[in-house]
């Protein structure tokens, strides 16, 4: 603003334009919203987990079994992301869990803004005691959701046995940006040419710090380990929040 008369810089005060240096990340707005979401989720007392995988890897079934294993022990909330339908939310709702279905209407991923709406809606279903775990089930897609932070504390990538053990090598970014790698449908190993060792080796090559679990929702294989991991993580997280 002009200091002598207070004009807004029009006319002779016109700003000079030419090359404007910006140096700003394209996803800066999404990441700022994600950061806000994370604080919001922390106020609810919850640890949030973003589940990423291709369609049909068993994300919803994993949630159902995890909810069953922690029933009466931890308070769980779920945000479901899909392109269309309430079907996943209906499955979770049948277990008496607070759940919100987000339908993107065509978009191949969730972003931090739509998830914020989801959190606000979920909040209306909660009692005053808050939440322990908030699962965000992303749109089934091993590529696009990876670029968008939602405000999660933990990102888990699922790979089911029928998809093949070469997927970590083919879709590296999903495995590079996750902290947990879940191989699902391990009861199908006898029927498919799937090497657990190859999948885990490739994933570890991309991200040496990955936690790994081999799960079957049908036989319940290794669910104790997975649920134990979540319990421990929640304990650590609560200690950090206290400080």
């Amino acid at each position: 603003m002009c200091e002598s008369c207070g004009c807004q810089g029009q006319g002779s005060f016109k700003k000079e334009i030419g090359v404007i240096e910006v140096n700003q990340r394209l996803l800066a707005a999404n990441d700022a919203q994600a950061e806000f979401n994370r604080h919001y989720i922390e106020k609810l007392g919850a640890l949030s987990i973003n589940l990423i995988s291709s369609p049909g890897s068993g994300k919803t079934t994993l949630l159902e079994k995890t909810i069953d294993a922690l029933a009466g022990e931890l308070r769980i909330g779920v945000i479901e992301g899909d392109i269309e339908t309430e079907r996943d939310a209906d499955r979770i709702r049948a277990r008496g869990i607070p759940v919100v279905q987000l339908t993107t209407g065509g978009a191949c991923h969730l972003d931090a803004h739509i998830v914020h709406k989801g959190i606000r809606t979920l909040e209306t279903q909660l009692d005053r005691t808050g939440l322990d775990l908030l699962f965000i089930e992303n749109v089934g897609n091993l590529v696009c959701p990876v670029s968008f932070k939602l405000g999660e504390h933990l990102r888990a990538v699922l790979l089911s046995v029928p998809e093949g053990s070469d997927k970590p090598a083919k879709y590296p970014k999903a495995f590079m940006t996750s902290q947990v790698f879940l191989i699902t449908k391990t009861d199908l190993v006898p029927y498919f040419d799937f090497s657990m060792e190859e999948a885990e080796r490739e994933a570890t090559r991309l991200n040496p710090g990955l936690e790994k679990f081999r799960l079957s929702s049908v036989t319940g294989e290794n669910f104790d380990a997975w649920v134990g991991y979540l319990r421990n993580l929640l304990k650590k997280y609560r200690n950090i929040l206290k400080d």
Binding site: I17, G18, V19, I20, E21, V22, N23, Q24, R25, L26, L27, P172, K173, M176, T177, R205, L206, N207, P208
Partner: peptide, 19 residues
């Protein structure tokens, strides 16, 4: 150790030329 990807996962708007 083994080598892991380092940085470079962003898209950055560097500059805009206007008139």
């Amino acid at each position: 150790g083994t080598l892991v990807a380092w940085g470079g996962d962003d898209i950055i708007l560097l500059s805009v030329e206007m008139e």
